[in-house]
Computed example of a mutant assay.
Amino acid sequence: MPKLPEELTLPKDYVADSPPAVPVTPKDSATVVLLRDAPSGIEVFLLRRVVGMAFAGGMTAFPGGGLDRRDADTSVAWAGPEPAWWARQFGCEPEMARALVCAAVRETFEEAGVLLAGPDGDSVVGDTSRYAESRAALVGRQVSLAQFLAEEGLVLRADLLRPWANWVTPVDEPRRHDTRFFVAALPEGQRADGVTTEAEDVEWNTPADALTAWREGRRGLLPPTWMTLAELAEHASVASALTADRQISKIIPRVVRDGSVIRAVLPGDPRYDAAPGHVDARPGDRIER
Results as ranks from 00 to 15, higher is better:
residue 7 E to C: 08
residue 165 A to L: 09
residue 109 F to P: 09
residue 156 L to A: 02
residue 225 T to M: 08
residue 234 E to R: 05
residue 35 L to V: 10
residue 73 D to I: 01
residue 144 S to C: 02
residue 270 P to A: 15
residue 53 M to R: 10
residue 84 A to D: 15
residue 254 R to Y: 00
residue 6 E to A: 15
residue 108 T to E: 03
residue 188 E to V: 15
residue 60 T to P: 05
residue 138 L to K: 08
residue 61 A to M: 15
residue 194 G to N: 02
residue 92 C to Q: 06
residue 266 L to I: 04
residue 160 L to M: 14
residue 67 L to A: 03
residue 12 K to C: 13
residue 40 S to G: 13
residue 86 W to S: 04
residue 16 A to W: 10
residue 37 D to F: 07
residue 114 V to S: 03
residue 71 D to T: 07
residue 103 A to H: 00
residue 113 G to M: 14
residue 83 P to A: 03
residue 125 V to D: 12
residue 256 V to M: 07
residue 124 V to K: 08
residue 209 D to Q: 14
residue 183 V to R: 02
residue 241 A to Q: 04
residue 127 D to C: 13
residue 257 R to P: 06
residue 177 H to Y: 15
residue 250 K to P: 01
residue 104 A to C: 07
residue 146 A to G: 10
residue 27 K to S: 12
residue 266 L to M: 15
residue 77 A to H: 04
residue 115 L to P: 03
residue 256 V to I: 10
residue 71 D to P: 06
residue 237 S to P: 03
residue 202 V to L: 04
residue 159 D to P: 03
residue 250 K to F: 00
residue 184 A to N: 08
residue 77 A to T: 07
residue 224 P to G: 03
residue 31 T to L: 11
residue 151 E to I: 14
residue 147 Q to I: 03
residue 258 D to H: 13
residue 154 L to F: 00
residue 267 P to N: 11
residue 118 G to T: 10
residue 278 H to R: 14
residue 226 W to H: 02
residue 52 G to S: 11
residue 253 P to W: 02
residue 147 Q to V: 06
residue 157 R to Y: 04
residue 212 T to I: 11
residue 180 R to E: 04
residue 245 D to H: 07
residue 35 L to Q: 11
residue 114 V to Q: 01
residue 40 S to Q: 15
residue 14 Y to F: 11
residue 71 D to Y: 05
residue 198 E to Y: 15
residue 104 A to M: 06
residue 1 M to S: 09
residue 131 Y to V: 11
residue 156 L to F: 07
residue 204 W to G: 04
residue 150 A to T: 08
residue 158 A to D: 01
residue 22 V to H: 12
residue 237 S to Y: 12
residue 140 G to A: 09
residue 246 R to M: 01
residue 73 D to N: 09
residue 75 S to K: 13
residue 53 M to I: 09
residue 192 A to E: 05
residue 104 A to R: 06
residue 31 T to K: 12
residue 152 E to D: 12
residue 269 D to M: 07
residue 107 E to Q: 15
residue 130 R to G: 14
residue 125 V to R: 02
residue 236 A to M: 12
residue 111 E to L: 05
residue 131 Y to Q: 14
residue 240 S to I: 02
residue 45 F to S: 00
residue 15 V to Y: 02
residue 164 W to P: 00
residue 175 R to F: 08
residue 132 A to D: 15
residue 223 P to W: 07
residue 283 P to V: 13
residue 175 R to N: 13
residue 271 R to F: 13
